[in-house]
């Protein structure tokens, strides 16, 4: 090796280019460890108590409404409202449950509305069960096979706030024929204001 200036050699060039190509190949073709980013999904059904480690969650009731009659205002649906009553019982400390989203069978995503006193998030502490009513305005073809996804993490930015954290996915139990009936019915639902839930989280007042 000479002192002073270094020469660009074929060998050196090949090493650098080869290294870059090898790195790009690794990143492109070796499967990333998706487990690092994936949330821990806890699946369940309406009425089931789901353990999310930071909270116990129960989806107590699912209804469909054309109109929401709140205390301050009434709201008519653009499509139809899926009204999801849920009960949160925090298990670690005071927790804000920010994630609430309906996904239909085609993978389309629907976010809740705060019209007519519906909740878009819930905040609860350990020691009691807290009830929240979420309302999602969805089109007719979203009803069949829809699920609701509830968590403490935010679902914005491709569920970024839910990475490596527990997430509940609850099947709303709406099948094809039911979907048509629910769509045609002209129900009015009065969303309850958030409050203490009834004793057994699994029970439902409806």
């Amino acid at each position: 090796m000479r002192h002073g200036r270094r020469r660009i050699t074929w060998k050196g060039t090949a090493l650098v280019v080869g290294g870059v190509v090898a790195g790009c190949t690794l990143v492109t073709y070796v499967p990333q460890d998706t487990g690092v980013d994936e949330p821990f999904i806890v699946e369940g059904a309406v009425g089931e108590v789901l353990d999310l480690t930071y909270a116990e969650l129960t989806v107590t009731e699912v209804r469909v409404a054309d109109t929401l009659a709140g205390v301050a205002e009434a709201a008519a649906a653009g499509g139809t409202f899926i009204v999801v009553d849920a009960s949160w019982r925090a298990t670690q400390g005071e927790t804000t449950f920010v994630g609430a989203e309906v996904t239909d069978a085609r993978g389309r995503r629907f976010w809740p509305t705060d019209q007519a006193g519906c909740s878009i998030l819930a905040k609860a502490q350990p020691g009691y069960a807290w009830r929240a009513t979420y309302c999602f305005d969805v089109p007719r073809d979203a009803l069949d096979g829809a699920t609701v996804r509830l968590a403490r993490g935010d679902q914005g930015e491709e569920h970024a706030g839910q990475r490596r954290d527990a997430v509940a996915v609850v099947d709303l139990g709406i099948s094809g024929r039911e979907a048509d009936e629910l769509w045609q019915a002209t129900e009015t639902v009065s969303p309850q204001e958030p409050g203490y839930a009834l004793a057994s989280a699994g029970g439902s007042e409806g």
């Binding site: 298990t91 670690q92 400390g93 005071e94 502490q125 350990p126 020691g127």
Partner: peptide, 8 residues
């Protein structure tokens, strides 16, 4: 068990 009640 470490649960914190009344943090609010």
């Amino acid at each position: 068990d470490g649960t914190r009640y009344g943090e609010s």
